[in-house]
């Protein structure tokens, strides 16, 4: 079984590294998930992660790349919501990686 150790806890991950129990998510967990992807979360990352959680609360699904960009542009402006910046922040796969770090299910509508 795939696990992520955060402090004294071992959290269950699926085969792609997403949290199995989404309610185990916390900022600490996000940092640990990011570390596993060799990524250090900056305020720029956090802004997108919080937006993703807002997206999920509103629509009950994880966005594919295009809607993620659209939503980010809508909420944070086009200088932040564009594919170049989001790709840069999240190692070229913003929808998949950001959803993982934000404690969302894997986006089902992107390959």
């Amino acid at each position: 079984m795939n696990t992520l150790t955060v402090g004294a806890r071992a959290l269950e991950l699926d085969k792609d590294g997403y949290l199995v129990n989404l309610d185990e998510w916390s900022a600490e967990v996000a940092n640990a998930l990011a570390a596993a992807e060799a990524l250090e979360l900056t305020p720029d990352h956090w802004e997108v992660l919080e937006l993703l959680r807002q997206f999920y609360a509103e629509f009950q699904l994880s966005p594919a790349t295009r809607p993620l960009i659209k939503y980010t542009a809508l909420k944070l402006g086009p200088e932040k919501g564009n594919s170049l910046r989001l790709n840069k922040l999240f190692n070229g796969t913003p929808a998949k990686l950001a959803a993982k770090l934000a404690g969302l299910p894997r986006p089902t509508n992107c390959l």
Binding site: E58, F59, Q60, L61, P63, A64, R66, P67, K70, Y71, L74, N109
Partner: peptide
């Protein structure tokens, strides 16, 4: 069930 009506609100963002 999963919230289909909430999902439907995302149609615009999916183009």
């Amino acid at each position: 069930q999963k919230d289909l009506s909430a999902n439907l609100q995302a149609l615009g963002l999916f183009g």
